[in-house]
């Protein structure tokens, strides 16, 4: 028992040999707890996400899925708990630093930057831009070449997401589905190693849903790790390798899509909710 506890402090105990990098989960969450007033929103004992996988996070409304995203990405602070990204402790770090470390999220209500062009939406996501510093911003030669490379990358990405014809339009003029695509493409411009997608297909027409799913699968094949919140069970079943179900802040089931779908606790959680409503 004492040895396990000391394993928590920063220099890891030498006894177990470090596993190979691929075996370390890209995201590990430990004893994460968040309360609003008296209501427990998130109370997750342990959750690991393996590298290069697609994991779906499901659960009835109010299960704490979005709150979990907010906590892990630094948009909200938990009462207690810690989490590790890529082997580094990122607990309590501000949102922008977590994003820079390679974990990029999207939002349930799409946050397209309406009064900026689609292209500018893409460009602003570029990581480590020299021109984003105040003083070098004033001296274009310091950032022009980087900017050109960024524009080229954005053009490729927009073409891949079939938004290239919209590049110079205001993002606010896009349809709901196109905004979801833009948000996904924009997240990729930040060169993440893990994506947290909050309901990527909500309010999107079926044709675009297929397109988004194809993109997500392609990203996984390129080595990306994806954790996503989803209500559409068809989507969940068709692309995820693993499903985690939350209810009332806790993880109540975790496993393959079929196993979770058949889990009694999961069925109870959903039906219980329905009966209430």
């Amino acid at each position: 028992m004492p040895t396990e506890q000391s394993g928590h402090s920063s220099p890891p105990p030498p006894s177990p040999p470090p596993p190979p990098p691929s075996a370390i989960p890209i995201l590990r969450i430990e004893r994460l707890r968040k309360q609003f007033g008296g209501i427990v929103a998130v109370d997750v004992e342990r959750l690991d996400v393996a590298r290069g996988t697609i994991t779906a996070l499901v659960g009835p409304n109010g299960a704490g899925k979005t709150t979990l995203f907010n906590l892990v990405c630094g948009f909200d602070r938990p009462q207690s708990g810690s989490w590790f990204f890529d082997g580094r402790d990122v607990s309590g770090r501000p949102a922008h630093r977590i994003a820079r470390s390679g974990m990029i999220r999207t939002f349930q209500l799409t946050k397209a930057l309406s009064k900026m062009s689609v292209l500018d939406n893409m460009l602003v996501a570029g990581a480590a831009q020299r021109g984003e510093h105040l003083l070098s911003g004033l001296v274009p030669p310091t950032w022009r070449s980087q900017e050109r490379a960024l524009v080229d990358r954005a053009a490729v990405m927009l073409e891949r997401f079939e938004l290239d014809r919209m590049a110079s339009e205001y993002a606010g003029t896009l349809s709901g589905g196109q905004r979801k695509l833009l948000e996904l493409a924009r997240a990729l411009m930040a060169e993440p190693s893990m994506l947290l997608l909050d309901e990527p297909t909500a309010g999107v027409n079926p044709v675009l849903v297929q397109s988004i799913l194809t993109h997500v699968l392609a990203l996984r094949d390129d080595g990306m790790t994806i954790l996503f919140v989803e209500h559409n069970m068809d989507v969940v079943m068709s692309i995820s390798g693993r499903v985690v179900c939350m209810a009332e802040g806790r993880v109540i089931a975790d496993g393959s899509p079929d196993a979770v779908a058949a889990d009694d606790a999961v069925i109870d959680a959903y039906l219980g909710r329905r009966r209430e409503a």
Binding site: H96, I104, R105, G126, G131, G137, E147, R186
Partner: peptide, 23 residues
């Protein structure tokens, strides 16, 4: 400049800017 682009992103949506790694 890209600096100004970040400002506009902040004006449009602070959380979006933050989620893309901007301080």
């Amino acid at each position: 400049s890209p600096w100004g682009r970040v400002l506009r992103a902040i004006r449009e949506d602070e959380d979006a800017a933050r989620s893309l790694g901007k301080n």
